[in-house]
Design a protein around this nucleic acid. Structure first.
Lengths: 132, 132
DNA sequence: TATCAATTTTGATAAATGATATATGTGAGG
DNA sequence: CCTCACATATATCATTTATCAAAATTGATA
């Protein structure tokens, strides 16, 4: 296929780090943990769930309606978020309210918004997952 | 098991959005695309690879040495990054140099650094993946 | 050709996913 | 108290996808 196709001359890309002062050390050391967090968001359904929770507390049924993720799968995904310490719950009668608990996921979601917000140059990064 | 166990009173968590002005609309609309990008980083090896490329251009062998990802797997992961339009290559004799191409992955990596940099309260988000 | 660098392929195993069925837990009425 | 309906949780299963290691392949240089 197209192995090393682009072949751009190096001169066009200064070899320096793009963002000068960022500290990658923690990321390297905790690569497992970080990638685990990313994996939780690396699914269209769970990403939509996270979007919902960014708006504040939401009931399971509310999330189901608004994301289209089917209830059993939704419940499973919410359980995953809880197990990872990213979400917490509160029961009010029959309904269970979910909310985000961990600040890192909020930082991350905010960064994602910044990266994709007014980003018209949509790339080819795609996924084959369906939506539950 | 422990269904809705935490039961924290709602009062402790104001229902308002944590970050006021962020625009989740794009994230929702492009959930597939975004989760596809996240999936690429949602693996310890690939995350380490991305860390390397944040520092600038790197040869495949350099990345192999520094990340410990075995060469055939490394090559496949780099190919994924290329296919997603996130990385570009330049050949110099036998060596192929990789570099990051897309600004979104850089924003994302920077955000990850910010989220995990001086974050001592390590959570239980973990992954079972090994390192290639 | 011999050799080193990088890529692709293959096969085995594990994990995620989506669908469906079933169970639990809670409040409302009888 | 008992049962029903509703909200949520869990179990299970078939299918897809990701993972890693090992082997075979291509590319470039000496």
């Amino acid at each position: 296929m197209d192995r090393a196709e682009t072949m751009t001359p190096h001169d066009l890309v200064p070899d320096a780090a793009p963002s000068p002062g960022i500290d990658l050390a923690q990321l390297r050391v905790r690569a497992r943990e970080v990638s685990g967090l990313l994996k939780l968001l690396a699914n269209p359904g769970r990403l939509l769930i996270a979007c919902e929770l960014m708006d504040g507390e939401r009931t399971v049924s509310e999330i189901e309606q608004r994301t289209g993720v089917r209830q059993p799968n939704l419940s499973r995904d919410l359980a995953r978020l809880r197990a990872a310490g990213l979400a917490a719950t509160r029961r009010d009668g029959k309904a269970v309210h979910y909310r985000l608990k961990d600040s890192r996921i909020q930082l991350l979601m905010t960064a994602l918004c910044a990266a994709f917000a007014s980003d018209l140059k949509s790339s080819s990064v795609a996924s084959k997952d369906t939506l539950s």
